[in-house]
C-alpha cells in the first residue's frame, strides 16, 4: 500500500510539481491550498508525511504545525516545512513547534523527493 503525503501550499503550480514528483516516486499525494483546507483533510485517513509552506494566507505555516500537533491521530506525523532562504527565523519557529525537516524554496523536484525519502520511503 502506497504511503500518502499531504502537500499544503497556496501555489497551485508548486503543488502540482510536487505531486508529479512524489507520485513518480511511488507515493500517493493529497493537496491542500492552505492550513484550514489541510486540517479538513486530516480527518481519519492515514497520512505518512505533511509538506507545508510556512507562508500561507488565512493560517500561516507555524500555526498550522501547532494545530497538527494537537490532533491525536496526526501529532506524530513528520512535517517538512517549505521556507525561503531568508527566513531562518521561520525555520527556527517551525522547528520549535516540532517540524524538524525543511526544504528551501526554490527547490528542484529531486531535492524534494530526497528529503521525503529520508523520512519515509514509498
Amino acid at each position: 500500500m502506497a504511503k500518502t503525503i499531504l502537500i499544503v501550499d497556496d501555489s497551485a503550480s508548486l503543488r502540482q510539481v510536487v505531486a508529479i514528483a512524489l507520485k513518480g516516486g511511488g507515493y500517493d499525494v493529497l493537496e491542500a491550498c492552505d492550513g484550514r483546507d489541510a486540517l479538513g483533510k486530516l480527518s481519519g485517513q492515514k497520512i505518512h508525511l505533511i509538506i507545508s509552506d510556512v507562508n500561507m494566507p488565512n493560517m500561516n505555516g507555524i500555526e498550522f504545525v501547532k494545530a497538527v500537533k494537537q490532533l491525536p491521530n496526526y501529532k506524530f506525523t513528520p512535517i517538512i516545512m517549505l521556507t525561503t532562504e531568508s527566513q531562518e527565523d521561520k525555520k527556527q519557529e517551525g522547528q520549535a513547534a516540532g517540524a524538524k525537516a525543511w526544504v528551501v524554496k526554490p527547490f528542484k523536484p529531486e531535492q524534494m523527493l530526497a528529503a521525503v525519502a529520508k523520512l519515509v520511503l514509498p
Binding site: F76, I79, A99, K100, K118, L119, V120, L121
Partner: peptide
C-alpha cells in the same frame, strides 16, 4: 519519535 522521525527510516534510506 515525537517529531515524526523514525530511526528505521534512516537505515532504509
Amino acid at each position: 519519535l515525537r517529531n515524526g522521525m523514525d530511526p528505521m527510516s534512516f537505515v532504509r534510506y
